[in-house]
Design a protein around this nucleic acid. Structure first.
Length: 288
DNA sequence: ACCTGACCTCGTCT
DNA sequence: AAGACGAGGTCAG
């Protein structure tokens, strides 16, 4: 009994790179031989798939949130029976701390779409507007700077296959170059203040804002409520939260979020990541 | 204030 | 092989 608990705990402390990359947080990662290559803003991260921990203070250390207190997070996560089950199945998943601008554009691009499409569009944006780099004789394109997208024409952005999202992508980039959206400021605000700023941007609603807050702005109580999460809440928690519908109003979203934080605690975002991974795998959904 | 439909594209399915 | 379907939402009316 004691042994199985401590075994789960020690497993939880080991990162699983592949599961983490394939948990819907990032789109610009690919595996070549035994290494994963990922674009994070103007950096390229190269990680051995077998890697289980990182030396303190390098880029990967922060990207995989190794400075989080897992003992404490674990103690919150295991309180919920379903999350505990997901944790047992995918103990090596981590939240990621991504480059904010890339994350911001990525989730604007993600709306009403699916992972293969999102990935293609983001690759197109990088190829068209990003700087080329060669690593281990592999060619990569960095994520574009906000200034480059700001100055691009709508038709250039449309060439990337983003459809009606082109206008949002452009306006969102302009907001950053003008300083109306300042990610360092947002990091210093609380969850509600930061979210309020984000949803002012065209193309950012409740769900996209929560993804940006959770995956790049260090707001661990953010709990993106997409179709999947609503389905999960209905399936495993029946009527504890709200009746599930395809679309929900701002007010309902807010009300569910409050109940969610009350139930899952201040690391609700971590809980969400485990639940999401478990249910998507259960339904054989595609990753990268 | 809440509710509805339209929306670009493209990978998948038939 | 061509045509329809729908996808981790958002916005306007």
């Amino acid at each position: 009994m004691i042994q199985s608990v401590s075994k789960l705990k020690s497993k939880f402390q080991e990162i699983n790179i592949r599961d983490t990359i394939n948990s819907g947080q990032v789109f610009l990662w690919e595996k070549k031989r035994d290494k994963w290559y990922g674009i994070d803003g103007e950096k390229i991260l190269v990680i051995d798939e077998k890697k289980r921990e990182f030396r303190k203070n390098n880029d990967e250390f922060y990207f995989f949130r190794q400075n989080d207190n897992f003992e404490e997070i674990y103690s919150y996560l295991k309180k919920d029976k379903i999350v505990k089950k997901a944790l047992r199945e995918f103990p090596g998943i981590r939240l990621l701390q991504q480059d904010p601008f890339q994350c911001y554009i990525s989730f604007i691009v993600s709306s009403n779409s699916n992972i293969p499409n999102i990935k293609t569009r983001l690759q197109n944006l990088c190829r068209k507007f990003g700087e080329k780099k060669v690593i281990n004789s592999n060619e990569f394109f960095l994520f574009p700077k906000s200034s480059v997208i700001s100055n691009a024409s709508l038709s250039q952005i449309l060439d990337c296959g983003v459809g009606y999202r082109a206008k949002s992508i452009k306006e969102a980039s302009v907001a950053v170059t003008r300083g109306e959206i300042d990610f360092e400021n947002l990091k210093n605000m609380n969850y509600y203040e930061a979210k309020q700023e984000l949803v002012k941007v065209l193309g950012i609603g409740n769900k996209v804002a929560d993804c940006i807050l959770l995956f790049s702005l260090n707001k661990l109580e953010a709990f993106p409520l997409d179709r999947w999460m609503l389905r999960i809440l209905q399936k495993y928690y029946s009527n504890k939260f709200e009746p599930a519908t395809k679309t929900i109003t701002d007010k309902t979203y807010e009300s569910i979020h409050q109940k969610v934080v009350k139930h899952f605690g201040k690391y609700a975002g971590y809980s969400q990541q485990f639940l999401f991974k478990m249910e998507r795998e259960l339904n054989n959904k595609k990753w990268l």
